[in-house]
Design a protein around this nucleic acid. Structure first.
Length: 561
RNA sequence: UGGGGGAUCGUCUAACGGUAGGACAGCGGACUCUGACUCCGCCAGUCUAGGUUCGAAUCCUAGUCCCCCAGCCA
């Protein structure tokens, strides 16, 4: 191993990987088996990416495997649409579970038998109390709970009642199967937790076969054991469930002995990860759907133009620890730009056009200029850029009365048109309202290609498109979905929605190559940012999304000043 | 308030009794046919108070602050 490799390996270390390594070194496991266990009640988001990268990453690095398991124990919230979307997103992200696709519902029969096992061993009982009564007798954080009046029911009666629950004899909420542990435990999860509840609901996979469903606590650990999961990695809020997880594993004849470990979930500034809230945004029409490019969902990021590799790199870069944290969204943006800069071809597009007429360029003439597709990658080749007497430039690239550090066009100023010629602004034509509507310029024919034979320099280089050859397009700019870094901290998430999260620009102009060759792949509009074609595009009506802008130290300085 | 966790540059994260390091952000500079990229430099941290030790982010004691738990959600 080289020093660099050793360093990279060290950088990929965290307490989970340390545990796995220690287990391997001690011979407790030969290779790790992990699982990613989403509940199909919504779409995957960037927060899940951290867990995905961890579980699949650990498996790959230590020569083990990672299962995909749908935690589908609550049919009232789960849908096939979500199951399909989760699989598609995972594949797009680049993760492969091979043949190891499972569902908690695959184990419903086995789980049912284990429930009867607990009853026979007097470790579980059917409780007739209502949900309200159960809550009242559970006690509080500081006071112990009281035993249910049904807690000492005999095995026979419990078995009979449980079977009748299964047979559908009782309505929702009438009875529940509870573990018999300790109503006085300081850990609320041990105060006779519910194991099975009655839910007359159609399950996306098992249909109407069942009307009783195991709870998360009764399903998760046992599913892990069935699959031979060695390291069951979950988030911090399940920490208090671990004693229950262990209790069930110890009292059931399960085929293996999984261990649960917890890590801190991902939080990002200006971002909400709550699936429940994201579903609200979709249901209330506050966004266009789960794949709205403003959403932190994997499908939203994909539509926005974020590469899978950027998400993977980001997930790796945030590390894994047990301390609650909020990652600066800037770190995510860095990962996105880093990847896009490498892979995106360069093109020219003008978002807010201002006409520029070259007075000394022959009326009927046009020509084609060579432009490279990627400045750092000669293999990406070149393309032809049509040039003519009338062009569009960015409105922002002209100022009538510019400050000293403005390097772009202004009356009397000379700049370079990228890949073309030097031009000098002679006059700014205005309309009755005093707005600049057109720039009259002259060009220097000797500067073709962008360099002056006499050696003179210009401070600015600006992008442009030909009026005659460019094509119109709609471009959508995205800003953070929330207007504060800590949405909801003021008590109302909805109130923190950014009213300017979407900005639609029409009448933008693209160089023709963008229509000829773009298939949805990432592209950089030079000097503007990274874009990709949106699925709303129609023939002759292209729509582009701005994935993310370029870093802009000029704008930053101007804003700060 | 009972129980379970957690505190290291602005942010994320290393350091496993032996030089507090990296990344992002920020600032300055070099380069530049993208005010991009790249490169160089700078800034900046061990929650507090005691103790153990030649030596403490790390061990001990006492505090402080933050997070999670009272679903028949996961």
């Amino acid at each position: 191993m080289t020093a660099v490799e050793a360093e990279a390996r060290e950088a990929g270390r965290d307490f989970i990987r340390d545990i796995v390594q220690a287990d391997i070194d001690a011979g407790r496991v030969v290779w790790p088996v992990t699982r990613f266990p989403p509940e199909p009640n919504g779409y995957l988001h960037i927060g899940h990416a951290k867990s995905i990268a961890l579980n699949f990453g650990v498996a790959e690095e230590f020569g083990g495997r990672c299962h995909l398991r749908f935690d589908d124990t609550n049919p009232t919230k789960e849908e096939q649409e979500y199951i399909d979307a989760i699989e598609a997103d995972l594949k797009w992200l680049g993760f492969d579970w091979g043949k190891h696709l499972y569902h908690a519902s695959d184990y419903f029969d086995q789980l049912y038998h284990w429930a009867e096992h607990l009853i026979r061993h007097r470790l579980a009982y059917v409780d007739d109390q209502s949900p309200e009564e159960m809550r009242a007798s559970r006690g509080t954080l500081t006071e112990p709970g009281r035993d249910s009046p049904f807690r000492e029911r005999g095995v026979k009666e419990n078995l009979d009642l449980f079977r009748r629950m299964k047979a559908g004899e009782f309505p929702n909420g009438a009875r529940v199967l509870r573990a018999k542990i300790d109503m006085a435990s300081p850990n609320m999860n041990l105060r006779d937790p519910a194991l099975y509840r009655i839910l007359h609901a159609t399950h996306p996979r098992t249909g109407d076969k069942w009307c009783i469903y195991p709870t998360y606590d009764f399903a998760h650990g046992q599913s892990d054991a069935i699959e031979g999961i060695t390291h069951s990695i979950c988030t911090l809020e399940f920490e208090d469930h671990r004693p229950l997880y262990d209790w069930l594993i110890e009292h059931l004849p399960v085929p293996s002995r999984p261990r649960q470990y917890e890590f801190a979930r991902l939080n990002l500034t200006y971002t909400v990860m709550s699936k429940r809230f994201l579903k609200n945004l979709v249901d209330e029409g506050r966004v266009a759907g789960w794949d709205d490019p403003r959403m932190p969902t994997i499908s939203g990021l994909r539509r926005r133009g974020v590469p899978a590799a950027a998400i993977r790199n980001f997930a790796k870069s945030v590390g894994v620890a047990r301390a609650n944290s909020v990652v600066d969204v800037g770190m995510f943006e860095h990962a996105v730009r880093d990847e896009l800069n490498r892979i995106a071809v360069r093109r020219m597009a003008v978002l807010r056009p201002l006409k520029l007429v070259i007075e000394n360029y022959p009326e009927a003439q046009s020509e084609e200029l060579d432009a490279v597709n990627h400045p750092d990658d000669p293999d990406a080749g070149t393309r032809k850029l049509p040039f003519g007497r009338e062009l569009y430039i960015e409105r922002d690239d002209f100022m009538e009365d510019p400050p000293k550090n403005f390097f772009r066009l202004a009356p009397g100023r000379e700049v370079r048109l990228r890949y073309a010629y030097f031009v000098t602004c002679r006059e700014a034509v205005k309309n009755a309202a005093g707005e600049v509507t057109e720039l009259r310029c002259t060009y220097d024919p000797l500067t073709k290609g962008g360099d002056a034979p006499d050696g003179r320099k210009v401070r600015g280089t600006i992008h442009w498109v030909s009026v005659a050859h460019s094509v119109p397009a709609e471009v959508r700019l995205y800003n953070p979905l929330f207007s504060r870094p800590d949405p909801g901290a003021g008590g109302d998430l909805m109130a923190d929605l950014n009213p300017d999260s979407l900005e639609v620009l029409t009448g933008c102009r693209l160089e023709p190559a963008l229509i000829a060759d773009n298939d949805g792949a990432a592209v950089q509009f030079e000097r503007l940012g990274y874009f990709c074609r949106d699925s709303d595009s129609a023939p002759g009506k292209p729509v582009f999304n701005r994935t993310i802008g370029l870093r802009d130290s000029y704008a930053r300085r101007a804003a700060g000043a």
